[in-house]
């Protein structure tokens, strides 16, 4: 399998790996075909992503795409992330082989889910923790 240098670099040195305490949004996505699972945590300040963390179970490309996904999300507005596509994630690792596109799918799905989670928490009745 031929992977890009960017992908290999993210696999070797994953950015922003690990869990986050008291996140403002959490999102998860699994890929049924292979059991890959990505979980993203967001810290949001003034509607923008200030910090991101990921935890991922999966093959090399899924781990690399998770790392690249954290860089994509950092600094973006949460509403932007609602439309993050698998193409955006695949581009962030300089492309994926056709049979590994699920890596981008699971990461984009998890980031979108984290963004939705943040927005639903914000609109939730008082008593829920809020960071605005």
């Amino acid at each position: 399998m031929n992977y890009s240098e960017t992908l290999i670099d993210h696999f070797r040195n994953p950015r922003n790996a690990g869990m986050m305490r008291d996140p403002d949004g959490i999102g998860e996505e699994t890929f049924d075909g292979c059991g890959d699972l990505a979980r993203f945590y967001l810290k949001v300040v003034d509607g923008r992503v200030a910090d991101v963390r990921f935890q991922t179970y999966g093959c090399g490309p899924t781990i690399a795409a998770s790392s690249a996904g954290t860089e994509l999300a950092t600094g973006r507005s949460v509403s932007d992330l609602l439309t993050l596509s698998e193409r955006d994630v695949a581009a962030a690792v300089d492309g994926l082989p056709a049979e590994r596109l699920h890596a981008a799918q699971v990461v984009a799905g998890a980031i979108r889910a984290a963004a939705r989670d943040f927005l639903s928490r914000r609109s939730a009745p008082s008593g829920m923790k809020q960071h605005v």
């Binding site: 399998m1 992977y3 290999i8 696999f11 070797r12 890929f31 075909g33 292979c34 059991g35 890959d36 179970y57 999966g58 093959c59 090399g60 781990i63 056709a98 049979e99 590994r100 596109l101 699920h102 799918q105």
Partner: peptide
């Protein structure tokens, strides 16, 4: 997941094989 080990070892110059095979996102 076995493929991540195979890739990680390959990057260290060690060739082993994965028991599970991924084709078109289906492992």
């Amino acid at each position: 997941e076995s493929e991540s080990i195979v890739l990680g070892l390959d990057l260290k110059g060690v060739a082993v094989s994965a028991g599970s095979a991924c084709t078109s996102g289906n492992v």
